[in-house]
């Protein structure tokens, strides 16, 4: 993969990066989508077309109309409003899970790369073990013991993110360590920790940023899966996954109930993936030269 090109790239003027970013179609489309989804989530804190906690049985299973843009569900709740509030939940869970992955995984990876030898071996075998648990399986286990809920979903997804970031950071750091500028920093007596902060991290940040967007989008999908099987956010907080599971039995009568949350998930994930791809292209000087 072309990821190696994101390491220790030339320093770029910030304005150049912005200009290049604005010329990159995936980046612009991805950014617009992602910002829109985030804005919708933020707006839902202050305003939604309807109150999603109120059940209006008279209005149940209405098709899309001027009053209910995407129609209503089997309890007469406005689907558009629920999608808006669901965005909040998806983004929060995925974002915090990425933060856990970065805050724990990156130091572990950098430490392993700096120390090598036995410590490296132990840390990486540890990440092998975590990887052996399919993410969803461990999430199901965690929520079984600690009970379902958004917080436990975050922990479950976050734990899986830790070895991902640890491995990416370690692999990238390992390829920076033998470089001559690290040798000369060592020759001037800097400690491993200081070299990691001053030399390694700035040079692997691009790669971590791209991995961050990938894990963010995977987090959205994982959260949807968990709440689909009832282990994510609990009622009355709307979540896209649970909306889908409720829609399943209504498939034949009210397909809009299933289509809307699915489309919301697809658009969000697509936006993030495009953003990640775009970022990779924008930050990678080698690819740029090929074009």
């Amino acid at each position: 993969m072309s990821d190696a090109n994101l390491l220790a790239t030339e320093h770029d003027d910030f304005r150049h990066i912005v200009r290049r970013a604005l010329q990159n179609r995936s980046f612009v489309v991805g950014l617009v989508i992602t910002l829109t989804v985030i804005t919708i989530a933020l707006v839902s804190f202050v305003w939604t077309p309807y109150d999603v906690t109120k059940l209006v049985i008279a209005d149940r299973l209405k098709p899309p109309s001027m009053t209910h843009w995407i129609g209503t569900d089997h309890f007469g709740r406005d689907i558009a409003s629920m999608i808006m509030e669901g965005a909040r939940n998806s983004i929060a869970v995925a974002l915090v899970a990425v933060a856990i992955g970065i805050l724990v995984g990156v130091p572990i990876g950098c430490w392993a790369a700096a120390k090598r030898g036995a410590i490296d071996e132990v840390l990486m075998r540890g990440s092998d073990i975590v990887f052996a648990f399919p993410a969803l399986l461990s999430a199901v286990m965690i929520t079984a013991i600690f009970g379902p809920g958004a917080v436990n979903a975050i922990i479950a997804i976050g734990i899986f993110n830790i070895p991902v970031f640890a491995r990416v950071a370690r692999g990238a750091a390992l390829s920076i360590w033998p470089r001559e500028f690290i040798l000369s920093a060592r020759a001037s007596g800097k400690s491993d920790a200081r070299i990691t902060l001053e030399h390694i991290l700035p040079n692997i940040a691009n790669l971590l940023l791209v991995q961050g967007t990938i894990q963010f989008s995977l987090g959205i999908l994982a959260e949807a899966g968990l709440s689909y099987v009832g282990l994510g956010a609990q009622p009355p907080n709307p979540s896209w996954g649970r909306m889908l599971s409720e829609a399943q039995t209504m498939m034949a009568i009210a397909p809009q109930m299933a289509i809307a949350p699915g489309v919301a998930i697809i658009i969000t994930v697509l936006g993030l993936n495009l953003l990640g791809d775009g970022l990779r292209d924008v930050l990678d000087p080698k690819l740029r030269r090929d074009r």
Binding site: L244, M251, I267
Partner: peptide, 22 residues
């Protein structure tokens, strides 16, 4: 393929059921 990656498999499953089974 970008779309393929973004589609949650259980949602796609619901869609398949709706079209091919129902």
């Amino acid at each position: 393929t970008q779309f393929g990656i973004a589609i949650p498999n259980f949602w796609f499953a619901l869609l398949l059921v709706y079209v091919f089974a129902i």
